[in-house]
Design a protein around this nucleic acid. Structure first.
Lengths: 196, 196
DNA sequence: CCTACCGATCGGTAGG
DNA sequence: CCTACCGATCGGTAGG
């Protein structure tokens, strides 16, 4: 409930992780240097290591915090007693919201999670697979109840999750469309299709 | 027409670019070293520079060759005298095919084009925008002719292009679904929607 | 195509 | 939090 948004009462480590998210988003994890990061934080590179153990720890923080956020959301949706097509809609709305309001983190996680080292790499990979499986189960139940078209559920999940990631480009564009309109358009396309 | 597919009569430079595509796909452009690449090609790192000018030239080759391929396809589709909803379907089929049969290149281009230096970065960015605009124009004409739902066309294009990129995960998965079934499922979802 | 090597930069540590 | 510095690795060149 207590959402801290880059405010002054954030830990120094939190500040570092936040600056790292933006840096990694802009340059990618591998092309980002600790000296780059230190400059943005406003200290010397060596000083960062009083708050973090390594560059990779930053990536771990980013990836697993995001994963936890995703898990909490799917927990809540699974518990709800609503039609399955509505659960799918809520999952989509959550991902759209994340991509609009937390896109640096989302993009870094999607693009750079492969740079995690073991055992974190395997752990993260498993979390990712588990998350997709839970969404797949919801889609499959939706199909069984005739609320969803008879499609291959894992394929549908891949499309749902990746279609939404396209909004990243929206941030850089002229943004002639509002965030709300964007959300409704995406839902319309994915739920009802492009064709008339 | 003459498609050479990693055959023996490829130039040494072509071999290097091909190996680079796979390496960049696996590790990302920035995390790939020329010594990595040299080992895969079977020579010393210094020897690569008899065939290429720099590491970045490899990325340029990959990005602009792909861009040319995309442009040729949209050229052909624009010329066709078919319903616009069919043009959209053909665009989708082209991208699905690329993602299934040429996924290393597609992924490298999408993930690492930002590491191009000027003036290539701007050139590539412009080509990308122009390509999307041409697809957007097709979607808009489809809407005008009532073949396509009345949606925000740029948003639809973002979704189309990114939804397809989700298939990359399909490669890593168990592949219980065939390429043909995958293609038909994607088209069904994007053209007709998830809902029943 | 190789050996030998360059300057630059990297992530990270020691010690205060 | 800083100065000073480490070994490793990077992209790339010289010269044959």
């Amino acid at each position: 409930m207590a959402k801290i948004k880059s405010s002054k009462n954030a830990t120094k480590k939190e500040t570092i992780v936040e600056k790292a998210s933006k840096l990694f988003f802009e340059k990618g994890f591998s092309a980002s240097s600790m000296r780059d990061l230190a400059e943005r934080v406003g200290v010397e590179a060596a000083s960062l290591y009083n708050h973090i153990r390594s560059k990779e720890e930053l990536l771990q923080e980013i990836c697993f915090k995001a994963a936890q956020h995703y898990t909490e959301n799917i927990d809540a949706i699974e518990k709800e007693d609503t039609p399955f097509i509505q659960k799918i809609e809520k999952i989509l709305r959550f991902h759209i919201d994340q991509m609009i309001n937390n896109y640096e983190v989302v993009q870094v996680v999607d693009r750079d999670w492969k740079h995690l080292s073991e055992p974190h790499l395997t752990n993260y990979h498993n979390e990712r697979r588990a998350y997709r499986k839970r969404i797949t189960a919801i889609v499959e139940e939706g199909i069984r109840r005739k609320e969803v078209k008879d499609i291959d559920a894992p394929t549908a999940v891949l499309i749902m999750l990746h279609a939404v990631s396209g909004i990243e480009s929206w941030h850089r564009s002229v943004q002639k469309i509002s965030a709300k309109d964007l959300e409704e358009n995406i839902l319309l396309i994915l739920l009802k299709g492009l064709g008339k």
